[in-house]
């Protein structure tokens, strides 16, 4: 049985994968799926509850909540992938270099990781956001720059064990450059756990973004994000429950989907962890 077949036999993976696939489709086809323009202000439909026309109700500017949520899927997808991509772009090479060279390089990198882990990451993110301009790109950079430590440790551990394997030793013996050995021979062998960490990272990046947007310092308001719809939901919680309930549900299902996919893949890809958990 190859990896794909095994992955497809795992129910957890399949459920997670289906959720993620649906979210992708929603994000891509948002303009066709959304019944209304998400930024269409309509004074005649302010804070209307769920109805046949507005399935999930409207907000205080009369905008259709469902349409805003559908476009919000784009934000969460973008933030999730880009920020974890940034985290990997920092963490993977650092971890690879630390694990491959060991010694002083390793010590320096790992002390830096320890240092970054001293900060409550949410505080660090807020502090950086405080000094930068509020934009979705800055959010992604900041989330990425404060969440690379896990994947760095992971890759380092992989490289520590890969370093002594025959093909690595052989490549060194042939006089290949470290960069070539790391990228050609090392990284492809460390890809499975990185992939799992990537998927799980997307889940937590989405949670972080929604938290920031909820606080009003994430994705800036006219653009819809599940987090900033909830901010408004909080303000109108006593009169418009639908704005507090549905966007959160979207976040929950999305994060759950990525977590299930990640955990399921871990079970199939990583034989060391396959037993209990």
């Amino acid at each position: 049985m190859n990896g794909w077949q095994r992955a497809l036999k795992n129910r957890v993976t399949v459920v997670g994968g289906v959720v993620v696939a649906i979210l992708f489709a929603v994000a891509v086809f948002a303009p066709w799926l959304a019944p209304f323009d998400p930024s269409d202000i309509d004074a005649s439909t302010i804070l209307v509850g769920p109805s046949a026309e507005h399935w999930l109700g409207t907000d205080s500017l009369g905008r259709d909540v469902l349409s805003r949520m559908i476009f919000g899927a784009r934000v969460s997808l973008l933030v999730g992938f880009v920020s974890v991509g940034i985290a990997c772009a920092i963490g993977v090479p650092l971890g690879a270099v630390a694990g491959y060279f060991g010694g002083v390089v390793d010590t320096v990198v790992m002390r830096f990781v320890d240092l970054m882990l001293c900060f409550p990451s949410f505080f660090l993110i807020l502090a950086v956001i405080a000094v930068l301009e509020q934009s979705i790109w800055n959010i992604m950079i900041v989330i990425g720059a404060t969440s690379w430590m896990g994947v760095c440790r992971l890759v380092r551990a992989e490289f520590l064990s890969l370093r002594e394997r025959e093909f690595m030793v052989a490549a060194r013996g042939l006089g290949q450059s470290p960069a070539k050995i790391i990228f050609r021979h090392g990284l492809p062998n460390a890809m499975a756990p990185v992939f799992v960490a990537f998927i799980l990272g997307v889940a937590s990046a989405i949670l972080t973004e929604s938290g920031l947007s909820f606080l009003g310092i994430g994705v800036p308001p006219p653009d819809p994000s599940w987090g900033n719809i909830l901010t408004e939901g909080k303000a109108t919680i006593e009169v418009a429950w639908w704005m507090s309930v549905y966007p959160g549900m979207a976040i929950l299902v999305t994060v759950l989907g990525y977590n299930l996919l990640g955990e399921g893949l871990r079970d199939t890809l990583d034989p060391r962890l396959r037993q209990e958990r």
Binding site: G211, L230, S244, G248, V253, L256, N259
Partner: peptide, 15 residues
């Protein structure tokens, strides 16, 4: 546990 991990705490608070 899975739901707990995926639950945004602020949304849970709102609920």
């Amino acid at each position: 546990v899975f739901v707990g991990f995926a639950m945004p705490s602020f949304w849970f608070a709102l609920l």
